[in-house]
Computed example of a mutant assay.
Amino acid sequence: MAKLLYSATASLDGYIAGPGGDMSWLTEHLVGENPTADHLLANVGAILAGNCTFGGDDPNRGTNSEGAFGGQYHGPVVVLTHRPPVEPASGVTFVGDLHSAVAQAKEAAGDRYVNVLGANVAKQCIQAGLLDEILMFFAPVLLGDGVRMFDHSGGTRVRLAPIPGEAAHWYRVIY
């Protein structure tokens, strides 16, 4: 059965997007090979994204690398939103509640990962006890402001355990 994995690249101060969702800061950090990202991409069967992430900024906008995983991902996408478009994009399913979105993404992924994109959806999955793993990549930059990789007013503590045999910063979520 599919596992839910939240992956993102963050600044060293914990932001996955700059102010207003700006992703341009990431462009210079996406050069070169990344065996962990390649391993992840090979094992992703579906993407679950929030509407802000799905329709938001792309560090590769306007290039051949636009889209998830630098334009290399071609598969099912489930978008969690209360405001679906009138004419959805081909290959994209828009769902209005978390549990249905997760179920549809897991079914689409088969025995591969559902890659969760977007801090808000990841937070909802954690709060619902649905997220299985977290993989963070870190870029050598401090943004100072923006969208945090995990932000929950009141300071929710989430325990994580390193996954043996996987890259650094790849963790299992412990509930």
Rank of each mutant, 00 (worst) to 15 (best):
E166R: 15
L135R: 13
V173A: 06
A2H: 05
A119W: 08
L12P: 05
E87L: 14
G71T: 08
D97Y: 06
M149H: 13
V95P: 15
H169N: 15
R148F: 04
A109G: 06
R157Q: 10
F150H: 09
R83N: 10
A139P: 15
P76G: 05
F137K: 07
A103C: 02
D97H: 14
V102D: 01
Y171V: 13
S90C: 06
A128L: 11
A122T: 03
Y175D: 09
S90G: 02
D97S: 12
E166S: 12
A167Q: 09
Y15H: 13
L142Q: 06
A101D: 01
R159G: 02
A167H: 14
D13V: 09
L5H: 00
P35L: 03
V78E: 01
H152S: 14
G32R: 07
V77Y: 01
G21T: 05
L4D: 04
N51E: 00
N120H: 14
N51I: 13
G14F: 08
M23V: 12
V114A: 00
E166P: 12
V86P: 08
T27S: 06
P140T: 00
D57Y: 11
F137A: 08
I174W: 01
R172E: 11
L48E: 02
H74P: 10
G70S: 08
N60S: 04
G144P: 14
V79K: 10
L12V: 15
L30Y: 01
L40M: 13
L48N: 04
L143F: 07
G62Y: 04
F138S: 01
E107K: 15
Y6T: 13
Q104C: 00
N115A: 03
S90V: 14
L41V: 11
L130C: 02
T27W: 08
L143Y: 05
V44T: 11
S153E: 13
P59W: 07
V31S: 11
E66R: 13
G18Y: 09
